[in-house]
């Protein structure tokens, strides 16, 4: 049975809930030109521009646009793509998850963010169980530092800065992840 969010939650669980929602917002925002708008603050991440579908391609589809910055970790890493897929699938697999048939490739940033959405949601549910909470935190820590943060930083570095919402996304994600890592460092 689903637990409802509420102010009576202990701070760590309340925080996990918020974090989980933020991850979902970022996952949506990197998946679709107009995703995540219901969650992410508009002062940090502006709403989609009128030409969102073009701007999104310009920003993020390296198969199509000459100036795009890939959202795939394989494009930013010297690692072999299949090995990276294998590692990521093993991560997801370990925590009981399986790709849907229509999912993006496992190294896509939205998939990685969605995985963090899951782990933080689980932390919100199990935050009162010390062993479970610690397991989830250490997994988040390692996943962030091995995959999501380096990818987000590389995207921030390579993404054009004249693409409004999408440049903001590329800038704000590593900022948020830095907060996350800072926090995880002190857990």
């Amino acid at each position: 049975m689903k637990r409802q969010p509420g102010s009576d939650l202990p701070e760590t669980r309340q925080a996990a809930l918020e974090r989980s929602v933020i991850y979902r917002g970022f996952a949506d925002a990197f998946r679709r030109p107009d995703g995540g708008c219901d969650v992410l603050d508009e002062t940090l991440i502006p709403p989609p521009p009128p030409n969102a579908r073009k701007a999104f391609v310009d920003a993020f589809d390296e198969a199509i646009s000459k100036s795009a910055c890939s959202l795939h970790e394989a494009a930013h890493s010297t690692r072999d793509q299949m090995d990276l897929f294998e590692e990521l699938v093993r991560w997801y697999d370990h925590f009981g998850l399986r790709r849907t048939d229509t999912a993006e490739l496992p190294d896509h940033i939205s998939v990685q963010l969605e995985f963090m959405h899951f782990l933080t949601h689980q932390e919100y549910l199990h935050g009162d169980e010390p062993e479970a909470a610690e397991t989830l935190r250490s997994a988040q820590r390692e996943f962030l530092s091995r995959h999501l943060m380096p990818l987000a930083q590389s995207i921030e570095e390579k993404c054009r800065d004249d693409l409004g919402r999408y440049s903001a996304l590329a800038d704000q994600l590593p900022a948020y992840l830095a907060l996350e890592l800072e926090r995880r460092g002190t857990d």
């Binding site: 689903k2 969010p5 925080a15 809930l17 918020e18 974090r19 989980s20 929602v21 933020i22 979902r24 917002g25 949506d28 998946r31 219901d38 969650v39 992410l40 603050d41 508009e42 002062t43 940090l44 997801y92 697999d93 009981g96 998850l97 399986r98 790709r99 849907t100 229509t102 999912a103 993006e104 939205s110 998939v111 969605e114 995985f115 959405h117 899951f118 949601h121 800038d171 704000q172 900022a175 948020y176 830095a178 907060l179 926090r183």
Partner: peptide, 30 residues
């Protein structure tokens, strides 16, 4: 990045209304 940013700066007001799991890329294996 400004030092004043906190987690909550990323959230829109009322965003927690949508706090359930939303995961188009995954299904549960186990």
């Amino acid at each position: 990045m400004t030092a004043a940013l906190s987690r909550r700066s990323f959230l829109k007001a009322g965003a927690l209304g949508a706090a359930g799991l939303a995961m188009p890329d995954f299904v549960a294996r186990t």
